[in-house]
Design a protein around this nucleic acid. Sequence first.
RNA 1: GCCUGGGUGGUGGAAUUGGUAUACACGCAACACUUAAAAUGUUGUCCGUUAUGCGGAUGCGGGUUCGACUCCCGCCCCAGGCACCA
Length: 793
Amino acid sequence: MEKYNHKKIEKKWQKIWEDNQVVNIDKDNTKKKFYMLDMFPYPSGDGLHMGHTESYTASDVFTRFKTMQGFNVLHPQGFDAFGLPAENYAIKTGIAPEISTAKNIDNYIKQMKLLGLRYDFDEKVVTYEPEYYKWTQWLFIKFFENDLVYKKTSKINWCESCQTGIANEQVVGGECERCGTQIVQKEIPSWFFKITEFADDLINDLDIVDWPEHTKKNQKNWIGKSEGAKIVFKVQSPKSKVEKEIEVFTTRPDTLFGATYMVLAPEHQLVQDLKEKVENWEEVEKYIKEAQSKTEMDRIEAKDKTGVKLEGIFATNPANKEEIPIFIADYVLSGYGTGAIMAVPAHDERDFEFATKFGLDIREVISGGDIKEESYSGDGVLVNSTQFDGMTSEEAKQKITEFVEGESTSNYRLRDWSMSRQRYWGCPIPIVYSPEGEAKLIPEEHLPWLLPTDVDFIPSGKSPLEKSKELRERTEKIFGKGWTPEFDTMDTFVDSSWYFLRYPDVHNEREFCSEDRKKWLPVDLYIGGAEHTYMHLLFSRFFVKAMNKIGLLDFNEPFLKLRHQGMILDGEGKKMSKSKGNVVNPNEMVERFGADSVRTYILFATPLEDEVMWNEDNIVGVYRFLEKVFYQREKLEETTSQEVQNVLHKTIRKVGNDINGLKYNTAVSEMMKFMKVVKTSQISQKDFEKFLRILSPFTPHITEEIWNSLGHDSSIHLEKWPAYDEKLAKDDLYTVAVQINGKVRAEIEVRDEDSEKEVKDKVLSDLRVQKWLDGQEVKKSIYIKNKIFNIVI
RNA sequence: GCCUGGGUGGUGGAAUUGGUAUACACGCAACACUUAAAAUGUUGUCCGUUAUGCGGAUGCGGGUUCGACUCCCGCCCCAGGCACCA
């Protein structure tokens, strides 16, 4: 008996498949299309990790399944190759990002092939290649021409010592991760995409996609639409009359009579405008400085409310004309609403905390709980609100807004997308500046606008591109003396916001995708990590909506169906990371157990969307199962027993349904059960081959080997998915649990065609049941066909 | 802090979505084969008990129901995300 040698088998078939281009995707044929997509990886130096292994195996299985079912499946792969890690690596080692990245990509491809993942790497998208980013730039130009791009200043985390912008991730406890210097907020000019213009569509169109409910919820919360009103408060100082106005957004205009003070964000422009009138300016300025050193996260997280009163000025509550104090406090964020609030301590938790600390008036205007202990933030009936007393919140919201001449409006948490970065390793922004400093688009004929190579990577407080002589010369040569290029590059999220639109036509030099190839769009099933719930998915949706508006696409949503794979954790439930030294290398596992076992195990271990606690011990169960399958080919009989026949058809049905629902863990266990039955019974070659076919998407190598050894010349992966026979999959007898008052007291066998009356007679004649009834009257009985018979006494 | 998800044997998990809780797999134990070990096979394995029975158990406490892992209310704990990591 030949031993199951996974190394030999996998090496052999991987070579044969590659040489013979088994199942190459035909982009022009007439079969029904199915676009299966993985979130493309960032090619890090660490190589492919277990999370990739899980989601790419999941999509590979689905691709093979759909192909067997007769679909023409597009399942491409690519690399999100611009980004910070390669640049940091370059800063550290001097090795250019394109060199380290290309090396990493080669490594990823090698690893993917070892896992038996079926991608056509001639059709890959690599975001740093000019043939790709040419179209990223082209899309920027189209967005610019259609008024979806603008420039304004925005704040970034800044490290004075490193002289560079710092990602939130690199800020640890308010300090720079690298050098420990206190991070400050710095205003710099930045390009923005107008994603907020699509806020309502981004919420509403979630109704038309098949996504996990929690992902939809998260997106809605991220966009954060709230209905309310804009209300204007007049600002005065005792010495002068009306000077300024503060506009606030509130979702609770019904509580306006309870507004006993106002708060401005420390960065609010009005604070600077009032400089002359504020009597304690020194103290105010000091607070603003402190607030600037904090990241937004620090401010949100702060347990203790802080703030400073603007002495010498006050605002007038437009509802009751009372004079109320104005504070600056960092619990009010400049980026949300108008950056100013009316504070109603009786009915807002944060305002209540602040008012308690600063001894401010707390005035109940909505009757509710006891506001001495805590605020009441629910709706209710108005009190202490003059002519509005007795109204419901609902009614008063509109009436009070009208009364103070406010404007009913919606506010969104979503901010426009700041997409420029002071980094080297990103897509150049196709903008040049005239000698007068006016931003102009680079004409399409000059695309791709190449990323220069004559730069060094040491941070100096300016964008690395400023150091490129070639870029400056190129700009002057084309546009004239005194013209300068844009030195910022694009956020890497821009690259990944449209890559899926390129796959159907990656080599097209005239268009990002031809009209004919656009028939492949949109993506039918998208699989990737839940960490992308917000940004990547939202940005991609924005791109598609914007392109639809411009007329470049005729659909509204990029990903019709979306599923997430869970995180892979180590045995202690910790996230795997290189720094913790707990990373499991997929290739080492493949070496030891084979790609077929690794693929099957990772899908068997847990539902796709759940976290996986990596436990190496369990993989041997899968390996043993594959051995059983391998040796079964030597035990094939002329005929198949009735028992196996029945289980086979049930298994085909269940595995097909489970793959469709991405419930791979139960699909695998079903196939294991099947082999258990086969072992004690008999199966013919013809029926065993049906089983091999349903197993083949999971374990492409071993099934190909067995298939081949059973006398087939062509690949098992060109076979059709077997049909099952509903009659053969049907059971004759069912075990029904007999319950008395909900407790199982007996079991009886029934036939499918038995009526409820027949079952009841059988139940009541059962000795065990009679013992429990003990002559008592049956008040009620409930029969769930073929499952439960419950007697209530 | 805010948003979202989760908690079932020693372990990963299953449960037809309100209908026999613990499928499948790992581990463990006993037995078989072996000089022995490995491998393989068979059997057993939620807990308690006065064991063919009965009682209890799906993070904790309550509720709805003939019946709750599943639905509702209140807690506890864990994970992910929070806009310049991708």
